Amino acid sequence: MKILTSTGAALLLSALALPALADDASSCGTVRFSDPGWTDITATNGVAAVLLTALGYTPDIPTLSVPVGYEALKNGQTDVFLGNWLPAQQSFRDDLDAHGSIVELVQNLEGAKFTLAVNKAGADAGVADFADLDAQRDAFDGKIYGIEPGAPANQSIQAMIEADEFGLGDWELVESGEQAMLAQVSRSGSSPVVFLAWAPHPMNEAIEITYLSGGDAQFGPDFGGATVHTLAREEWVEACPNAAKLFSQLIFDVPMENVLMGRILDDGMDPQDAAKEWIAENPDRVQGWLDGVSTLDGEPGAEAVLAAVEK
């Protein structure tokens, strides 16, 4: 069986839209979804956690690297994942497809992008395309700064280096977490630096970024234009239709995520506190997310969420 599309998952959820909340209460009280350590997913996970808590569920959000997180979903150790970036993570989707136990609940974000970029000093050095990098190797110290080990984007960079594409065969990929990478960019000052950059992310406001053209083969067209998808175990969707319906309707946008991520990264807010504040400021979004969703004990969901965030 192949991974269901968002339409297929919606049909499944529709078929399961029965008064089965008693089963939800006994078997679905804890909802497990992983965090790969990326602030955008931390932000959306924070929103999901606030909503679930207000509905009477208990969110369980372990921090797992991208490869480990996909294995956890495939092996039934987690229930949902809100961070399936496509096309960057297509290989993981292909693996889940072959496994045949995962459904796509919804495309939760459009307008994202993810590719290599340079800081202002790099742009001032004349780098605007992947093909411009090697001529400025010494200025960049021959290093490309990536994110956590095992991330698909890092694998794409390493494959590019090993194939000596764009003359980058003697360059080095520096793997680290998101925050360590951005700290390196901040420390660079007037020195050129090339690194992974993406939107949504407050880095786009804090750093003068030039996204590099020419990386279509490595990251996809339109500067690594991407969509983000929510995946879930089919067995969980069948057993927990109320919680699954929430996730199938939980759709975000780039401006929203930029705000949430800025509050987390720049203001030091707890992700759930940031989410609760944003939801209180934007109560109109709750109705769409909670349409037809109840609390775990069968009460109207939207009213419960709005009451919780106003406290």
Rank of each mutant, 00 (worst) to 15 (best):
N282W: 07
A17V: 04
E299D: 14
D216E: 15
S156M: 11
A275T: 04
S186N: 09
Q158E: 14
L173K: 01
V194N: 01
G268T: 11
T115K: 00
A123R: 15
R93K: 13
N108V: 02
M256S: 09
T58D: 11
L265N: 14
G100F: 08
L250F: 03
V228A: 06
I147W: 01
Q179A: 14
F114W: 11
S176I: 01
D23M: 08
G29L: 12
S213K: 13
L133F: 13
L55G: 11
S294N: 14
G146T: 01
D132S: 01
L265A: 13
F195C: 04
D94E: 12
H201D: 15
E235R: 14
A280F: 02
E175T: 10
S6Y: 05
G150L: 09
P202C: 04
T63W: 03
Q158R: 12
D124T: 13
M181W: 01
V31C: 12
V193Y: 02
H99P: 00
K120R: 15
I61G: 03
D284M: 09
Q272N: 07
V193C: 07
P19Q: 11
V228P: 07
I207H: 13
L116T: 00
T42I: 15
P200F: 09
M261I: 08
G262L: 06
W38M: 13
A217P: 03
F92H: 14
T63I: 14
P19G: 08
C28V: 03
V237I: 10
A135Q: 14
I161L: 07
G225E: 15
L13H: 03
K74L: 12
L296P: 09
D267P: 01
L116G: 01
A180F: 08
P19V: 06
D284S: 15
T115L: 03
A163S: 13
